[in-house]
């Protein structure tokens, strides 16, 4: 606690701790991550090695990017539950179109549903003021329907995972997963956008206090529409990466990543009410969840138990942040 100089003396330890947590959410998160890795090492001595690290990173990266979508939307007080469907659609379309199309064309076709769904989400939330959760859930249902129809039309031509995606998803160079080539620029871009661009500022401002943003001349619908399109695009790209990792195009490819992506953002310190948080925390949150999943698998915790745990984490972390914010 080096920064207590500016705070009044005689503040109770609990309060100081809470304030510290609010100021530097990353430090307790990193500590938690290290503890989890240590537990893993104790349970399975020798498991933590170079290969394990690369593998963890490979699985954490798609989750981290999708959690980036959640982070951005949650900063405005929203959520994007359609990321799973969007990622799946992009992956599936890419895998099936690459068979007959030029890669560039296939890529553009794959990103099309992402843009469309993002646009519909953005208009629904920004203009019609539908609750983001309901809106994105609805578009994800429609998207799944389209995907099923689409599947029929391509059933004859079959599917193929492009070599490049294969390389990107699973390849490891000098001990580093190739996926980092995609992830590092994306992460840097998101962090830069949130901190150093007008758009990023507006995301925080709109989520913190929409009225204040409005009084400052911000047009809500513009920000929200752009945001959901961006979120969908990211989800689409994640789908391409994920198909390279999983290598089996299915109609529920990225669906299992949706709830963890919300949990990762929440654990990472992004407030589900908006206005507070950042992407670095989310990345650590995604790492924590990936390690936790490994740990739970080792402990033979069933899928159901994991979901319960995620749900409780979301609830408790949200309630805790609420207390921290109310404390002042």
């Amino acid at each position: 606690m080096t920064d207590t100089a500016t705070m009044p003396q005689l503040v109770s330890f609990g309060r100081r701790l809470r304030r510290f947590m609010a100021d530097r959410p990353l430090i307790p998160l990193i500590i938690l991550l290290i503890i989890l890795v240590a537990i893993l090492q104790v349970l399975r001595p020798g498991i933590v090695n170079e290969r394990w690290l690369a593998n963890t990173a490979k699985f954490a990266i798609p989750l981290a990017i999708l959690a980036g979508c959640q982070t951005m939307t949650m900063l405005t007080g929203g959520i994007d539950l359609s990321v799973g469907t969007v990622a799946t659609m992009s992956a599936f379309i890419m895998a099936t179109q690459i068979v007959n199309q030029d890669p560039t064309v296939a890529f553009l076709l794959a990103m099309m549903p992402a843009v469309l769904i993002g646009l519909v989400n953005g208009i629904g939330v920004g203009v019609f003021r539908v609750h983001p959760l309901i809106m994105t859930l609805g578009t994800s249902l429609i998207g799944t329907g389209f995907l099923q129809v689409y599947q029929r039309t391509v059933i004859a031509s079959g599917a193929r995972i492009p070599d490049f995606l294969n390389w990107l998803g699973t390849g490891v160079t000098y001990g580093f997963p190739n996926a980092l080539l995609l992830f590092v620029p994306v992460a840097v871009l998101i962090v830069f956008m949130l901190n150093r661009t007008g758009f990023g500022r507006l995301l925080y401002a709109v989520g913190d206090n929409e009225r204040a943003a409005r009084l400052s001349g911000v047009r809500y619908w513009q920000v929200i529409t752009a945001l959901y399109v961006l979120s969908s695009l990211l989800a689409g790209i994640t789908g391409l990466l994920y198909i390279g990792l999983i290598k089996a195009p299915s109609l529920s490819l990225a669906e299992p990543l949706v709830l963890p992506s919300v949990a990762a953002a929440v654990i990472g310190g992004t407030s589900i009410f908006g206005g507070r948080g950042g992407y670095t925390g989310t990345i650590i949150g995604a790492l924590i969840l990936t390690v936790l999943t490994t740990l739970l698998t080792i402990l033979q915790m069933p899928e159901g138990g994991r979901r319960i745990l995620f749900g409780l984490i979301v609830l408790f972390v949200t309630a805790a942040y609420l207390r921290i914010v109310e404390d002042r």
């Binding site: 661009t197 007008g198 758009f199 500022r201 507006l202 400052s216 911000v218 047009r219 752009a226």
Partner: peptide
């Protein structure tokens, strides 16, 4: 203080 600077669509870029 800087909030109104970013409000307009064309000011969304890098600050």
């Amino acid at each position: 203080i800087a909030l109104p600077f970013s409000a307009a669509l064309r000011k969304w870029g890098p600050i």
